[in-house]
Design a protein around this nucleic acid. Structure first.
Length: 168
DNA sequence: TGTTTTGGGGCTG
DNA sequence: CAGCCCCAAAACA
């Protein structure tokens, strides 16, 4: 890491943005040549096509997931965050399909606190693939993408139903 | 229900 | 560095 806070990779890699349509609305996706950097839910941008080979592959895998929730993503991810955040995000990826865990349960696994886990989940730059939707509150669904209710929570609910972790 | 405790992160000075 | 505020929680009465 240099003084300007950038890795060499940040300088060298070209970034491609594209927007796809999914059952949970438009997703704005940001990739480099070989890594997923970010996924934004509820994008307001219009649909744009994936250009690079890698971008097309990301689009293909996301379509596969919406077709069949048991599809396993095989994509290189580059989620930028603090050490703690990365630890939480790693924990998220270890929650099996169709299962949920409470913020407190995940916290005890990594020797932390429930609210701290929630904070890190809120800052997850790659929702969907890093499955923060599988973490719920003891007294309900908890939040999603920084929101406690509304459209985003409907998406969280949809994903859990899609995966079979939640009855309709 | 409401109140209290909680653990990281980010901001400010 | 310290102090302060922000939260997608949880425990408890």
């Amino acid at each position: 890491m240099g003084d300007n806070g950038l890795n060499n990779a940040d300088i060298m890699c070209e970034v491609e943005d594209f927007v796809i349509n999914t059952p949970v609305g438009l997703l704005a996706i940001k990739v480099t040549n070989d890594e997923v950097i970010r996924i934004d839910l509820n994008s307001n941008e219009s649909i744009t096509s994936a250009r690079s080979y890698f971008a097309k592959e990301v689009q293909r895998q996301i379509n596969c997931y919406f077709e069949d929730a048991s599809f396993k993503f095989n994509l290189k991810l580059n989620a930028k965050g603090t050490g703690y955040q990365r630890k939480v995000w790693l924990g998220l990826q270890n929650i099996p399909l169709a299962q949920t865990m409470t913020y407190g349960e995940l916290a005890s696994k990594i020797v932390s606190g429930a609210r701290a886990v929630g904070n890190a989940c809120r800052n997850n730059p790659i929702p969907l693939i890093v499955p923060c939707h599988r973490v719920v509150s003891t007294s309900g669904l908890g939040g999603f993408a920084g929101k406690l209710d509304g459209q985003l929570i409907d998406i969280k609910k949809f994903l859990l139903v899609h995966e079979g972790a939640l009855l309709i």
